[in-house]
Nucleic acid binder design. Sequence first.
DNA 1: GATGAATGAGCATTCATTCAT
DNA 2: AATGAATGAATGCTCATTCAT
Lengths: 202, 202, 202, 202
Amino acid sequence: MNKRQTAALETKRKLISTALELLKESGFDAINVEDITKKAGVAKGTFYTYFKRKEDIVLDISRVPFGEIADEVEKMAGMEIITKLTHYFHRFMECVESCGINTCRQWTKDVLNPNNVPDNKDGQKWAYDFEMLKGILENAVKNGELKENTPVELLTHIIISQLYGMMTCWCMSDGKFEPLDWTNKFCQAQLEIIFKPYITQQ
Amino acid sequence: MNKRQTAALETKRKLISTALELLKESGFDAINVEDITKKAGVAKGTFYTYFKRKEDIVLDISRVPFGEIADEVEKMAGMEIITKLTHYFHRFMECVESCGINTCRQWTKDVLNPNNVPDNKDGQKWAYDFEMLKGILENAVKNGELKENTPVELLTHIIISQLYGMMTCWCMSDGKFEPLDWTNKFCQAQLEIIFKPYITQQ
Amino acid sequence: MNKRQTAALETKRKLISTALELLKESGFDAINVEDITKKAGVAKGTFYTYFKRKEDIVLDISRVPFGEIADEVEKMAGMEIITKLTHYFHRFMECVESCGINTCRQWTKDVLNPNNVPDNKDGQKWAYDFEMLKGILENAVKNGELKENTPVELLTHIIISQLYGMMTCWCMSDGKFEPLDWTNKFCQAQLEIIFKPYITQQ
Amino acid sequence: MNKRQTAALETKRKLISTALELLKESGFDAINVEDITKKAGVAKGTFYTYFKRKEDIVLDISRVPFGEIADEVEKMAGMEIITKLTHYFHRFMECVESCGINTCRQWTKDVLNPNNVPDNKDGQKWAYDFEMLKGILENAVKNGELKENTPVELLTHIIISQLYGMMTCWCMSDGKFEPLDWTNKFCQAQLEIIFKPYITQQ
DNA sequence: GATGAATGAGCATTCATTCAT
DNA sequence: AATGAATGAATGCTCATTCAT
C-alpha cells in the first residue's frame, strides 16, 4: 500500500467516524452529506469517491464494532453455551449502544428498505446476525453440549427477535428502555430456563 | 353532532384509510401529502385541517386496529393466562401485519423520534403496549393464577421486546421473516417454559 | 342603531384592537387572519364580513388615534404657530408610537403599494397628513401670523419629510432611535430657526 | 483568484444585478427566487450558494451604489460644508432612486426587521448612513469650519431623518413625491438657515 | 484523489379567501 | 351576522449528486 492509498483509506475512515459521531447526535435524515464532509475536513465531492449513495455509509458505520464480535466469538470456544451466549448478547448490545439510538433507528428503516437501496442483499444486517448466532448454537450441538434434537432454527429466531426487540424498545421508548441493562437481566433470568430442556448432562 | 361535523369526521376517516393503503404500498418517505389527498379526493390543504404535520397521521393509522385489541382483552377475562397471552400476541401481530411493513418501519422512526415530533409523549405506542401487557399479567397475579412473586415488570419487558423484535426482524429481513407465523411458534414452544415457574397449581 | 348593528360594530372594533395588539408584537406578515380572529373570539370567516382583504385592517388601525389629532388641531386655533406645530408634531409622533413599530413599517409597505392594493387612493395616509399640516400653515398665513410670501408648499413638504423620517429612523434602527424624543428635540432646536424668516412682527 | 473563483464571483454579481432589475419593476414579495435565477440564467439552487435567505440579497443590492458615495466623500475634502452636504445629499438620493422605490420600501421592512433577519446588526443601513454623515460634520468641526459648540449629534439625527423622510414620502406617495427634486429644494432653501448659527466667520 | 460550484427535482406547509350552513 | 371546513395556489429552501477543473 503506497502513500496515496494510505491517505485514501484514512480519508474514508475519517468520513465513517465523523458520520457516526453526527448520527449519535441526530437522526440520519437530519444529517446531510455536507455536514459530514465539513466536519471531516474534506470537500463535499470527496464523499462520493468512497460512497455511491448517502445511505451506504450507515452499514459501514456498524461494520467496525460488530466485526470485533465475530473475532471474539472464536475465542469463546471453550466456554459453556450459556456463558457464551451471555457474553455474545452483552457484546452485541454494547455495539448497538455504541452506535447510538439514531443509527439503530436507521437499521430498521431506509438502509434495509429495498425500495430505497436497490442493491441491498435482503437485509444484510439481519442475515449476518442470524447466521452468527445460529453458528454458535450449531457448534454447541456438534460439541455435544446441546442435544441433537435442539430446535436450532427456532431458538435462533426467538433469540434474535429478543435482541432486536431490545433495540426496538430502546428506539420506541426514546431511550428510556436501556437495552444493555435489560439484556443482562434477560440473560440472568431467562437463558437457563430457555435452554434447560436441550442441555446435555455431561 | 350536526351534518357539518359528520362530514368533517368522514373526511378525516377517509384520509386515514387512504394513507394506510398508500403506506402498505410504499415507504412513508416515498409518499407525499398530495398523494394522500388526491387519492382521498380532497384538496391538499384539507390534510392540514386534521393533521398538524405529515407524520401525525401514522399514529392515527394504527389507533383503529389496536383499539380493537383493547376491547377484546376485556372479553378474555375467563381464559387461562397462557391462552390469553397466546391470543393477545396473535391479535397484536395480526394488527401489525395489517398495518403493513412500512407503517411498522415508521413506528420505530420519526413518529417516535422526539427530535421530529416536538409534542410526542415519550413514545406513546411503546408505553401503551407495555401497559396493556402489564395489566394482563397483574390481573393474573390478582386472580391467583400467577404467584405473588412473579416478576411482572421483568416478564412484561421481555415479552414486549419479543413482540417488537418480531416486528423488527420482519422489517430488517424485508418481509422474509413472517412475524405472525413466528409469534405463533414462539407461543407454542416458549410461553409455557417461561411461565411455568410462576403458575400456581390450582 | 339597533341591537344587531351595535353588536356588529363591536365585533369590528374588537377585530381592529386585537389586530393592533398583535401588530405591536410582530410584523404584519407574521400575523395571519386566524391569529386575529381567534384572539378576538370570532370565527375566521367573520373577518371578511368587515374587511375585504387582510391588509385593509391596517389603515383602520391608525384611523382612530390620528382622527383624534384632527379634532385637537381645531381647538388649537388661538395658539402661536410654533406652539401649534410643536403640539401637532408631538401628538403626531405619540400616535405613531402608539401604533407600534410594525404598524409603522407596514405603512411604508404593502398598504400603500398599489401592486398589492388595487383600490388604494395614491397613498392615503401621506395625502391626509400633508393636507392637515398644509392647512395649519395656510391658516397661519391667513391670520397674518406668517408672511404672504411664506413658501407653504415647500415648508409642508420639508416638515412632513422630517416627521416621516423620524418614523423611518425608528424602523430602520430597529427601535434604537426614539421618534418622540427626537421630534421634541427637533421642535426645540430647529422650528424657530426654520420659521423665523416668515413670522410677522406683530 | 483562479478561473473557478472568477466565475463564481461573476455568478453572484449577475444574481445581484438581476434582482435589482426585477425589484425595480415590482415589490420584493412579488418576486420569487425562481424569477431571479431564471432571468440570471442559473439554477434555482445556485441562489442559495450565495445567499442564505431570499432577503439577504437586498442589502447587497444597495451595497454597490452606496459604496461609491463613501469614495466620493473623501474627494470632497476641500469643499465648504454646505457644498459638501449638498453634494452628499444629492448623491445619496441618486443612489436611493437608482435602487428603486420597491428596494426602498424593503429597507424599512424585512431587511431590518430582526424578527426576520436573525443576524441583523441593529439596522446596518441606518447605522452606516448615520456614521457617514456624522463623520462629515465632525471633520468640519475639526477643520474649524463649524464652531466647537455645534450640536453634531443633533444635526446628524435631524438631517438623516430628513433624508430618510424624503425616501419615505416617495414610498408613501407611491412615487408622486420625487425625492431627488425635493432634496435639492431642501438644500437650497434650508441648509444655510440650519447651519448659519454654527458656521465660523473665516 | 480532491474539489466545490452548479444543478433542479422535490415537497411540506401556509394561509387568504370562499361559501354552504 | 356568524361559522369553520374546504380550498389550492404559491414558494422558499434543501440536498443528493454530478462534473469540470
